[in-house]
Nucleic acid binder design. Structure first.
Lengths: 142, 142
DNA sequence: CTTGAACCTCTAGTAGCTAGAGGATGTAAA
DNA sequence: TTTACATCCTCTAGCTACTAGAGGTTCAAG
């Protein structure tokens, strides 16, 4: 039986985060000692590792919930699992494309500024006037 | 004089967001009609455009606050501005590197799964066992 | 003068945690 | 056995950057 602290160390997940996952129903309620402290078994360690690894790969908690559900039903076709993974891959690729455009623009800004006063600063000038931009970067966030 | 709705359309920023920027002190308090409605001038339009464009380039609101402050002091050296931009560029590059690693891993997962039952699903297998991963992707988020 | 779009404030919600207060428990050494 | 102290507990509030909605008021055109 593992304490929450041990589980935390083994998975690299903060104690608070483990309790949070329990609260939102991603982790099951563990057993408790007489004094009320949580005690975990290996199944729960595996589950948390799965969650943790999925998070590292950028899956949302909602997606992870779906993946865990599917993982619990071994005889279903894995098309749904694949679909979730492909969706994630697509999202990652979209973000990369966006970041690439931002990098281009930022590089140009930084490059063109040759260190005078802020009044003549190319960086500020570009920020003031969108028309100086070469690439599209309309959306915000992600 | 512009209404908040007109300002919203001109900059592509939602009305609620403009009020939010005012609340956190990023936009100054505008003039008001007798009835209490906000009215903006061109300086405020410029400022909001600046904010909007900076957001599109991924700057945080805190960074934008710094940029606006510097922009208001035309005689200071623009090194600080450059530093902020370079910091942003670095962050973008870090995120890109991370996404690249994720993409590699996700592609491999999706590729190796040939559509059987979830019990044999390669995607789930990789998620269960980090050691199957080739790339590093320790951090979460960003 | 009426209508209706646009405005107002205020509260609460989103994702995915993180931090801290204030107090209880578990364990190992003295 | 007592004491020390790390770890645990619950609960609340905070973070970024908005977004949505309730319930009510103002503006401008006809």
């Amino acid at each position: 039986m593992l304490t929450i602290g041990t589980l935390s160390k083994k998975t690299g997940t903060k104690v608070q985060t483990i309790r949070y996952y329990e609260q939102i129903g991603l982790m099951p309620e563990p057993g408790r000692t007489e004094g009320g402290q949580r005690r975990y078994d290996n199944a729960q360690l595996d589950r948390l590792s799965f969650i943790r690894h999925s998070r590292q790969l950028g899956f949302s908690l909602d997606a992870i919930r779906e993946l865990l559900d599917l993982s619990d039903q071994p005889n279903r076709p894995c098309e749904e699992v694949d679909a979730i993974a492909r969706r994630q891959l697509k999202q990652v690729e979209q973000r990369m494309a966006r970041l690439k455009a931002l990098r281009t623009e930022l590089k140009r800004m930084v490059h063109e500024c040759s260190g005078g006063r802020t009044a003549d600063c190319k960086v500020l000038e570009v920020l003031r006037d969108h028309s100086e931009c070469l690439t599209e970067h309309d959306e915000i966030g992600a």
